[in-house]
Amino acid sequence: MSKPVILCVDDESVVLDSLKIQLKNAFRDAYSYEMAESSDEAWEILEELCEDNSHVLVIVSDWLMPGMKGDEFLIKVHQRFPKILKIMLTGQADMEAVEKAIEQASLYRCLSKPWNSEELITTIKSGLTNYQYSQNYEQTSGDLC
């Protein structure tokens, strides 16, 4: 069985590189890490992972991106995959967008850029623990992808 996946979405490659390094340092080989530079690319990755029966546990998404904004993307994800843990990482989201994501995408947390690595890792760990994904993702895979 393939490893569960953490997907990061941001239009800045330097942000994605930094996230990948921080996640790998914290979680080592426990997860696979996918990076996307747009919501369209992220959606394609989600579709491919589903076809491969891979389980996406966490999405960390920027808010301000070309095309679809992060709150809209996370709402779309939530409609199809409600149990994926959704975190927004942004320096520019307004409160209305964050509230919309909380209400319509079940946003777990919004972190500000520049982010603190420890806070990001703690947020992911607590989210996975709260939702019991780390132990139960196989039993609930129909909702996780």
Rank of each mutant, 00 (worst) to 15 (best):
S2P: 15
V5Y: 08
V9A: 12
D10F: 15
D10Q: 06
E12Y: 06
S13E: 11
S13F: 11
V14P: 07
L16V: 05
S18P: 07
L19Q: 05
L19P: 02
I21G: 00
Q22G: 05
K24T: 09
F27A: 04
D29T: 10
A30M: 13
S32G: 09
Y33M: 01
E34R: 01
M35D: 07
A36D: 05
E37V: 14
S39L: 03
A42R: 01
W43P: 08
L49G: 07
C50I: 05
C50F: 14
E51Y: 07
E51N: 14
E51H: 11
E51P: 11
S54G: 13
V58F: 12
V58T: 04
I59G: 00
V60E: 10
V60N: 04
M65R: 01
K69F: 11
G70E: 06
D71Y: 05
E72Q: 11
K76P: 06
H78D: 04
F81C: 09
K83C: 00
I84Q: 05
I87P: 00
M88C: 07
M88G: 00
L89Q: 05
Q92I: 00
Q92E: 09
A93L: 08
K100M: 03
A101R: 02
E103G: 01
Q104T: 03
A105R: 10
C110R: 03
S112W: 13
P114G: 03
P114C: 07
S117I: 00
T122N: 13
S126N: 12
L128H: 00
N130R: 05
Y133D: 04
Y137P: 05
E138H: 14
T140Y: 12
T140Q: 11
S141K: 15
S141M: 15
S141N: 14
G142R: 14
D143I: 08
L144N: 13
C145L: 13
C145N: 14
